[in-house]
Amino acid sequence: MYDFAYHKPASVADAVKILAADPDARPISGGMTLLPALKLRLNKPTSVVDLSGIAELHGVKREGDKLVIGALTRHVEVATSAEVKAAIPTLAAMAGTIGDTQVRNRGTMGGSVANNDPSADYPAALLALGATIQTDKRKLAAEDFFTGMFTTALEVGELVTAIHIPIPTKAGYAKMRNPASRYSMAGVFVAQTAAGVRVAVNGAGNNGVFREKAMEAALTANWSPDAVADVKVDPGLLNGDIHGSAEYRAHLVTVMAKRAVIDAG
């Protein structure tokens, strides 16, 4: 890694101040993506702003019909949180499948959301659940926040502070892992929410996480695994690599959608 300055602010305001002053500074939460990039010298920030000392960004709480999860909440905390398990058990289960034990002990929901890796788990959950991403400046619907592969609506220096997740009637998730990296190669999150049935797909889209409207229509008409079994996804919208062609991923999206509905019950 190249040399960089290190800051550890105690408040969001202080963090934002450092980031605003230097467009080449990078925030770090769990560091599960940034650290490997630094080690491989793929990233050369002038300074790294460590958010882990900001108490207000930690923790899970229930506020009425939604969960509010602080951006610095680690995957292991989501996976084991009694609040999350009671409200959205699938979300807790999903968090328990991210990476491995070491990654779950370091990685954070806010970091994953801000990175918007197309193979990451959380973006599909937040998109399907109709979550709202709160930043230090504003609130954005998940659909407006996730704008493409590794891109979000975040402006330079803007920080995710919390994620507000409406509690669904039911929700389910299934993914096929890339055999090598174990990231999602095709993952589907289904949810019955107050705003209707929503289906979001990770790992497969050629422009990141996306909603699968045909499946939403099918499940709205008939909430059952069979309802999505015949909904085909256009491989032209999907990516391919040595582990999975677009055609294979298209097939997997349908299979995972079925399994997600079974998971939701």
């Binding site: 055999p179 090598a180 990296s181 690599d241 040595i242 582990h243």
Partner: peptide, 22 residues
């Protein structure tokens, strides 16, 4: 699981554990 894959130009496509399945 395992396969070292070179493309036709001689680049090692499975050059890390992200793509080489241990």
């Amino acid at each position: 699981l395992e396969a070292a894959i070179y493309d036709a130009s001689g680049q090692l496509v499975s050059g890390s554990f992200m793509d080489y399945t241990m």
